[in-house]
């Protein structure tokens, strides 16, 4: 994509709902109906979702929630979006036990066994613990890399970053 003026980068462009739903459906097998109550927008390389309602003509800093980043391939879902849409996922989901869930929430990388990763292809996965979505993980070759944003992590055992 060619460089654009800062003004152009700041514009939210409406996106077709079905197109977004199809992308999520293809990676996570989330029924497209899950997305029916939302409108979608694109700003630069990010896609945003907001509850369906008419938006007054204002200059917006954010429209709802940033749900995915298309800067790199494959596209990356945000942790907060997986907490909303992830519970409906039927593939590329991973359910962790207590100790692994803790490591994941600390932002760590860990090995996962074949049974845990049974439903996962390489790439971004929805990580669960006790039925709740913890967030986004990057899975490949038996390794799970936590994608939990820094400010959402549990403080690590070493005691770093507790403030």
């Amino acid at each position: 994509m060619s460089p654009r003026s800062s003004r152009a980068r700041n514009v939210f462009e409406p996106l077709d709902r079905d197109a977004v739903a199809e992308i999520w459906n293809s990676r996570f097998a989330i029924p497209e109906s899950v997305f029916s109550g939302y409108n979608f927008f694109r700003k630069a390389r990010s896609i945003w979702a907001i509850s369906d309602s008419e938006l007054p003509g204002l200059s917006y800093e954010a429209i709802g929630m940033r749900i995915m980043n298309c800067k790199d391939r494959p596209w990356k879902p945000t942790t907060c979006a997986l907490q909303v849409f992830g519970p409906y996922a039927e593939k590329n989901t991973m359910h962790l036990q207590a100790a692994s869930a803790r490591l994941f929430m600390e932002g760590k990388t860990q090995e996962v066994d074949a049974v845990t990763a049974e439903q996962c292809e390489s790439g971004y996965v929805v990580v669960f613990y006790r039925g709740d979505v913890l967030g986004c993980g990057l899975y490949s070759h038996g390794k799970l890399v936590s994608q939990i944003p820094k400010e959402r992590r549990l403080p690590g055992k070493e005691g770093e970053d507790i403030s």
């Binding site: 509850s51 940033r66 400010e151």
Partner: peptide, 16 residues
Amino acid sequence: RSNCERLGAMNVAITR
């Protein structure tokens, strides 16, 4: 923004 996203508030738009 961070609080809206963490709390799953989907009907909020931010202006400045």
